[in-house]
Nucleic acid binder design. Sequence first.
DNA 1: ATTTATCGGTAGTATTACTACACAAGTGAT
DNA 2: ATCACTTGTGTAGTAATACTACCGATAAAT
Lengths: 303, 303
Amino acid sequence: MYEPPPATLAAPESLPVPTMGSGEPLLQRLASEFGSLRKSERKVAVMVAENPEFFMHSTMAAVAEAAGVSEPTVMRFCTSLGFDGFQSFKINLAQTLALGIPATHSAINDDDSIPELTTKIFDHTLTSLDRARRNLDTRQIESAVAMLVTASNIIFIGFGASGIVAQDAAQKFPLFGVPCLAPIDAHQQFMAASSSTPGTVLVVISNTGRTKPLIEMARQAKRNGASVIAIAGGDAPLLSETDVNIVVKTFDDTDFYTPTVSRLAVLVVIDILATSVATGRGPEHLGRVRAMKHDLTSFRNGD
Amino acid sequence: MYEPPPATLAAPESLPVPTMGSGEPLLQRLASEFGSLRKSERKVAVMVAENPEFFMHSTMAAVAEAAGVSEPTVMRFCTSLGFDGFQSFKINLAQTLALGIPATHSAINDDDSIPELTTKIFDHTLTSLDRARRNLDTRQIESAVAMLVTASNIIFIGFGASGIVAQDAAQKFPLFGVPCLAPIDAHQQFMAASSSTPGTVLVVISNTGRTKPLIEMARQAKRNGASVIAIAGGDAPLLSETDVNIVVKTFDDTDFYTPTVSRLAVLVVIDILATSVATGRGPEHLGRVRAMKHDLTSFRNGD
DNA sequence: ATTTATCGGTAGTATTACTACACAAGTGAT
DNA sequence: ATCACTTGTGTAGTAATACTACCGATAAAT
């Protein structure tokens, strides 16, 4: 007769998530795993969600009292989420709180005061940048840098907010060390892509990665033998047309009030690329950059 | 005979800094107050500076052992810096570490690997944005918003990186609800400032606040009765020529490797301004913005 | 309705942070 | 140079806190 597999299989591992923070923000996880919590543990969960600051500075006894449960329940709550204990949880909570209350917990309302709005937007920005950092694949960056240091010229293209980012990138041409172009209108962009050569690197910036004209330009550049780097917010049609893909994950701008934070994250990525390329080009190149910066200061002040 | 003043005067208040984080980053303070620490406490200080992660996850006994001092010394170290105790210090340390190791502790070297460089730049960016947030005066924002909601048209100007920021700001004109201009070259900028009217609001973006042509443009706009808002990195000549000054403090880009993070902070401030103005204009305006966003998505995908 | 498994609290224990005290080292004055 | 005195550091003890083992209650399943 058939024997069912041993019951121990029912408890493989409580949580694959490591104890310290490389995963999703804590309060996010709290919401998603709320269903798998016990009734009394949920009381603790809502307490920490409503008043994380208090939790952070309190002892177990105080938390237990405030949530209306016993101390071991608080303890179980912490271990249920995969932490070593109360202290470990508190430390982790402090970490996420440093970036501000995550966006999902603080949507922007019409009647928010300016100070409220200020903190909310900063919180959202910092949390999103943190997310981008955690999800960034440095190998992609490495490939991109390798491509850029051997480039004879670089073209940055993008529409809307990404177009501004492209402008910013092109302005860093002293760091890249080769001529940089960032045409603004669609026709000029296509012309640039179309007249690219095998030495050209085309950097396509698109948050959605679905903008059709950009995909077309990427194809055109590749036909000319150019290398194409895509910087996008996630999996998208564009990424299958390119040589290197840098995925910059932020929090989706579901609420239309919340400003597009993705462009900030992309700007940071550009910073990383530019700096990496500059250091990769050796000391004499850096000397030229330094001299340029110095001269610019004089020019700016009108000396 | 002369009696010296009572000795109690020698200990007025240990530290004016509040226990929780509104001041400078912790590791920064550690460096600046290192001199006023006792010999054994300094051992603890260097330990936490070298290996903050370890400190964060350890007990007092472990830290004492690692630093080669006794537990009370660790305790005194915490209180000397103005914290309630060991726990309080640990929580605060975790907070600062969440943003990454601050810039001053991790200057960029020529031989840094790409992953190293990535974390360093992200850390620097996040820390700087956090600093900008803490030092931002919301009353200045409020004044600026009050000015912008009554504007009939808005002009954004800036040079270099700030010029890009101006472009980005102008692109948010749907949120501002009035025509926005962001001329690129100096002559066009001056012409725009010169042809401004009392309904015009001129937003001058300059990190240094010393760029002479910009100051001249601000003067010109004021002569025409326009209102002028300055967004700058600190006290500077420009600020005495304007109606409202928004100071965005980041970390000075002393090292020329470190990319200019100030522009990112200013972008966030622009986000705040745009969102505030949009909500301030009432629901029917927001409805139009929402419709516009929806239509843009269709256009983008070429449907 | 009874058994069984899951859940929550009470009581106890081992750590851990914190404090009071005493010794040592450095400093200034007689 | 020696002595009083301040300052700094460690030892020993205490109160608290986090964590654990156990048992009663409650809900679920048969």
